[in-house]
Design a protein around this nucleic acid. Structure first.
Lengths: 145, 145
DNA sequence: CCCAGATGTTTGATGTCATCAAGTAACTCG
DNA sequence: CGAGTTACTTGATGACATCAAACATCTGGG
């Protein structure tokens, strides 16, 4: 098995490569968001809004304090990208819903992200499957121990 | 080739998996940094300081405005993790150098990062090499188009 | 039923990071 | 030498992030 062109990388090398790709991807995302006048955080919130999500739920998804979400949603709401609706079952909670404009904006951001990643097209089906399988094994362990 | 357990993933699935791993890794890094009273940005700066680096160089590495670096280094310097030294060849530039304390802190942060990634140990050498090779093909294309 | 405790949201104080515009000092080159 | 560039800092402003505290609402045991 040692006739492969690439020798076994060290753990550190793998981690650094993952980190490099991660930050590059994050910057792409930030740039795509910025083109539509969104901060990365705002774009992230919009991306979570398939359906109504309570403020508290957003805090969980973003892994941040609930009081933080108030301001983020305030700014999105001021631009009509998002709406706060009362929850029918619990008068304490306010559900955040993307407006049509909000859905449109986040759709464009996603498109630009994918367009920027032509590199993925250089992987054939087998390679994609292999990469996905290996990465999938890394994912769950990244959770809190 | 269809007898593999994992069917070929879509581009979007791959991107999302990469994003998930990326954010998880970032959170690990932030948590490790926080345990030593560092913000992620501060830890990132320390991690870059193998040798002396001019303020401007840090701005390039962090992909941010130079004026931003002033404050970040100020805070690190206030805690004696970093020192500003005059450059011998250009009196305009100030080189940032990690102090012993700074080197020690960032070393511990790195250790905690790796400790958290036992998942990588479940990959054998061939799998590591394959993963590394595939990821390496993704990296360069993530640059600015 | 009713009150004690838990939960959801907001406000206010504070700190870090990000930008831009402007200013000062020092280098470089014609 | 003088004009233009470069390195760093300062100041203004805005977005995130935390924590503490207030408030309304839900929930469960007595």
């Amino acid at each position: 098995m040692s006739e492969t062109a690439t020798p076994a990388p060290t753990k550190v090398q793998l981690l650094e490569l993952l980190a490099a790709i991660g930050t590059a991807q994050w910057r792409e995302f930030a740039a795509a968001a910025a083109q539509h006048g969104l901060t990365p955080t705002q774009a992230r919130v919009l991306a979570q809004l398939e359906g109504p999500v309570p403020m508290r739920g957003l805090a969980v998804l973003l892994v941040c304090d609930a009081s933080n979400v108030t301001g983020i949603v305030d700014r999105l709401e001021a631009r009509d990208l998002v709406r706060r609706e009362p929850d029918p079952h619990d008068r304490r909670v306010k559900n955040v819903v993307a407006t049509d404009a909000g859905r449109q904006v986040i759709r464009r951001v996603r498109e630009e992200m994918q367009a920027a990643h032509g590199a993925l097209d250089t992987l054939d089906e087998a390679e994609s499957a292999t990469l996905y399988a290996l990465l999938a094994r890394l994912r769950p362990s990244m959770e809190k121990g």
